[in-house]
């Protein structure tokens, strides 16, 4: 695979130029590597004062009071996790089913346009989703979906209380709409990559179309799809603007999903530019550092899953 390098020849000026060029691009490559490390170190450093003051308990305290300089990140961690899991819960089945439709069921003339539309969904900027979520989605959810859920599932604390419109539930729904295209587009590619002879072998046994998908196609694509789901989770965890605009911005851990909450990204977006005390800024850096670690963990997990599919041994050979 590797292109042979010209080595072992007498040193000439041309080779010096080659060496300089290689060094240059290697340095730029190292720059990319260094940047990722620098971000982590930088955040940790800036978060130092707050983490020093409150210790590891910073991530377990549920007080956030800039006036009294009491800070704890738990409400934001809860809000981030709650909205992200809600997003995955709602979004990933729809995304997977869309991917299956595009890869296996859609007639040829429909595949292109629908794939294109789904990919467009991914190109819409976050702030536009937020705008739509605030003025269109939240009122609709408040007047229709939330009362319905309250009626059916009101015996659970998660679905009790007044319907605010903005809140954790709406944040989860808007995130779901945002993760659908990314999961669907790549899942479609993973499903398509399953060799055709697997499908035909299952069909030749007298399997129905759904059985072919269920037993021959999906198992072969499984680890790739799981990886993509985790990747979608990573994206949802860090998503900022859309959630900031519909989450309600209240640093509490509400019992109900309908109540306002806050996410890690949202509190940084809202308070950072206006924070005056050093401890407040440091606490926001602390939240950012926590978010960085969380997404790092999730992304590494996802890459490992996806890489195993891309470069791992492929069966059937």
């Amino acid at each position: 695979m590797t292109f042979p390098r010209i080595a072992g020849r007498p040193v000439a000026r041309s080779q010096l130029a080659d060496a300089v060029f290689e060094l240059l691009v290697a340095a730029l490559g190292l720059g990319v590597l260094g940047l990722a490390v620098a971000i982590g170190l930088n955040l940790a450093g800036e978060a130092g004062p707050a983490l020093g003051q409150f210790g590891p308990a910073f991530f377990a305290r549920s007080i956030w009071d800039p006036v009294r300089e009491e800070f704890g990140a738990l409400p934001f961690i809860y809000g981030t996790l709650a909205t992200s899991f809600l997003a995955l819960l709602i979004g990933s089945p729809v995304a997977l089913a869309t991917a299956i439709f595009l890869a296996e069921l859609a007639p040829g003339w429909l595949k292109g346009p629908i794939s294109y539309l789904v990919e467009l969904l991914a190109a819409i900027p976050s702030v536009v989703y937020g705008l739509w979520g605030l003025f269109v989605l939240a009122p609709v959810l408040r007047t229709t979906v939330q009362p319905a859920l309250g009626n059916w599932l009101g015996f659970l604390p998660l679905f009790q209380g007044p319907f605010y419109g903005v809140g954790i539930f709406t944040g989860g729904v808007i995130l779901a709409i945002m993760v659908i295209p990314s999961i669907a587009a790549v899942s479609r590619d993973v499903i398509r990559a399953v060799p055709n002879d697997q499908r035909e072998a299952m069909l030749a046994l007298g399997a129905t179309r759904w059985e072919t998908i269920r037993y021959a196609v999906l198992p072969a694509a499984r680890s790739g799809i799981i990886g993509l789901g985790v990747l979608g989770l990573g994206r949802a965890l860090g998503e900022t603007m859309a959630v900031t605009m519909v989450i309600g911005n209240r640093p509490e851990i509400p019992a109900s999903l309908f109540a306002p909450g806050y996410t890690m990204a949202a509190v940084i977006a809202n308070e950072f530019a206006e924070a005056t005390s050093d401890l407040h800024l440091s606490a926001l850096f602390g939240v950012g550092f926590g978010l960085f670690l969380l997404t790092l963990l999730v992304n590494i997990l996802a890459r490992l899953l996806v890489w195993r599919v891309a470069w791992g041994p492929v069966g059937g050979e």
């Binding site: 030749a204 007298g206 021959a216 198992p219 072969a220 059937g316």
Partner: peptide, 21 residues
């Protein structure tokens, strides 16, 4: 066609066992 295929079995050019089974 599903009923037909159950009555008429097929073996393909390249061995294609289901890799996950």
């Amino acid at each position: 066609p599903v009923v037909v295929r159950r009555r008429v079995g097929m073996v393909f050019q390249r061995p294609n066992p289901f890799p996950t089974m």
